[in-house]
């Protein structure tokens, strides 16, 4: 069962929720899809057992064979190719590695070359299988890495927690694509409710069942809770705005492993999620 944890903005508590849920789930898998700034591994400190490079394919021009028909330039929907001074010019960072230009070139004047864009690291932290995607600095899209992250998971781990990147762009869509359930983490502010709305719209579009976790709860109004009520989103649990939790988090300590109180809070939260996932949609 795959559970994705997402939020409309960074710093809401996606990693807090997904790391702690994985920690109380027994044998489980934690996947860090926030490939631009993966931080789950800072908490788990896994023993890395495997590291694999992720490469994409980029077209390379053999100018001697090019007759200037421009088939490649006209085909590319991403405008990654231009035709200047009788030869195609490739813009690597615009290319989406679809391979179409290479297939279509009637002169076979294009071939593909691999370009490394990051790594996937596998390791263990107690009973948790930890998989981390890391995008190289300067690369435009983490999508190829996220695609690789979701493949070939160990059989023994029934519960998979997917720590998504913030927002609702392509990288998030790729992260939740195979999820059975989505947890939306939200802050108790107007801005937080606005961001909750963004991800709620996204998971609705993907027809994913979802529930919300209200983080940093204090007394007083909670615009995110209000949003959940308006949209009939199930509230799975509440995490208090607590300096003890903040201190543990700042020191990369997994609260559910170090504190009885938080072990209980996240166990209850996991139960609430599993009950929801089990419900017919």
């Amino acid at each position: 069962m795959k559970i994705a944890v997402l939020s409309g903005k960074g710093g809401t508590g996606k990693t807090l929720v997904s790391v702690n849920l994985a920690s109380v789930a027994g044998p489980s898998t934690y996947i860090d899809c926030d490939v631009e700034e993966p931080n789950g591994h800072l908490f788990f400190k896994p023993n890395v057992v495997r590291s694999e490079k992720v490469a994409v394919k980029i077209p390379v021009v053999d100018a001697a064979h090019c007759t200037g028909c421009r088939t490649c330039v006209e085909f590319c929907q991403y405008n990654a190719l231009a035709f200047i001074r009788n030869k195609p010019l490739v813009f690597e960072e615009v290319c989406h590695s679809c391979g179409g230009c290479v297939l279509l070139c009637p002169q076979k004047a294009l071939h593909e070359q691999e370009k490394n864009i990051g790594v996937v690291e596998d390791g263990y932290s107690g009973e948790v299988f930890v998989r981390t995607g890391m995008l190289n600095t300067g690369e435009v899209s983490g999508v190829p890495i996220i695609r690789k992250l979701q493949r070939e998971l160990p059989d023994e781990t029934k519960t998979v927690l997917i720590d998504c990147p913030p927002g609702s762009a392509c990288v998030v869509m790729e992260s939740i694509k195979d999820a059975d359930y989505c947890i939306l983490v939200a802050e108790p502010t107007i801005f937080g409710a606005q961001n909750l709305g963004m991800v709620h719209e996204l998971v609705t579009l993907f027809k994913k069942p979802c529930g919300a976790v209200l983080n940093k709860c204090q007394s007083g109004d909670n615009p995110s809770e209000q949003y959940c009520c308006e949209k009939s989103i199930r509230i799975l649990g509440r995490i208090p705005f607590d300096s003890e939790l903040g201190a543990m988090n700042s020191n990369a300590i997994i609260a559910a492993r170090a504190s009885g109180k938080y072990h209980q809070l996240f166990t209850e939260l996991l139960d609430a999620v599993l009950t929801e996932v089990g419900k017919p949609t």
Binding site: N79, A82, I84, V94
Partner: peptide, 18 residues
């Protein structure tokens, strides 16, 4: 015609100028 492109508008627009 590049104005409506999802991405790579600069490349396509520059091509038209060339």
């Amino acid at each position: 015609s590049a104005a409506e492109s999802q991405g790579g508008a600069g490349v396509k627009a520059a091509q038209s100028i060339v």
